[in-house]
Amino acid sequence: MLELRLVQGSLLKKVLEAMKDLVTDANFDCSATGFSLQAMDSSHVALVALLLRSEGFEHYRCDRNITMGMNLNNVSKLLKCAGNDDIITIKADDGGDTVTFMFENPKQDKISDFEMKLMDLDSEHLGIPDAEYHAIVRMPSLEFSRICKDLSSIGDTVVISVTKEGIKFSTRGDIGNANIVCRQNTTVDKPEEATVIQMNEAVSLTFALRYLNSFTKATSLSETVTISLSSELPLVAEYKIADMGYIKFYLAPKIED
């Protein structure tokens, strides 16, 4: 028996919006730790890892570990039927082949439930070891989103370099080239407006902009994004989900021929 009650239902709506264009079908894993997912895009260039910890739910019952395969576009369609202020409850029976999403409005005078068939999906779980990154940059998520969008009007790929000077995003295309540098800036009114650069070693890597643009669909989940870079590893863009966990996007770099 699985029963998860999330008072801030809008979080789940935002999480699905952030993932549904990147990943088509995915297994949601439910355990005592929380509600999680790891999935790749169809070309295996990007990976998304989601964790919503059990403590973040008002009620969390998961008698045994359950894996539930779902089409994210269909889940997103169902969650669009929930109001932004609704409480969302996810229910499933052990060994069942359906999941139920229940929505309650704040006045508690409208209750909807939607039952969806589960899918049997091959699991493609990758082991992601903890790593020391060459550079970790925390910046406002809206700023990162703006940079990715602006640069994709000029080029298809971006070179992200971190040096003592700051984090530099560079692209080139038919009409010319562009460079955007963000320097460390901690003299801000609110901590979430800061750009904080931790650098152990200078690093420079090339990435496809369309994936980064897809990651920025998570912008509404967090005011800041943390970008981790290492020369031998995929980039990680992490959006923390307040009091609950995170959504992390991994992107494999372009490799020099």
Binding site: V45, L126, T206, K254
Partner: peptide
């Protein structure tokens, strides 16, 4: 421009 890397080149299946 270089070729696009894939996740499996960096992380192994478990």
């Amino acid at each position: 421009k270089g070729s696009q890397g894939r996740m499996e080149s960096f992380f192994k299946p478990v």
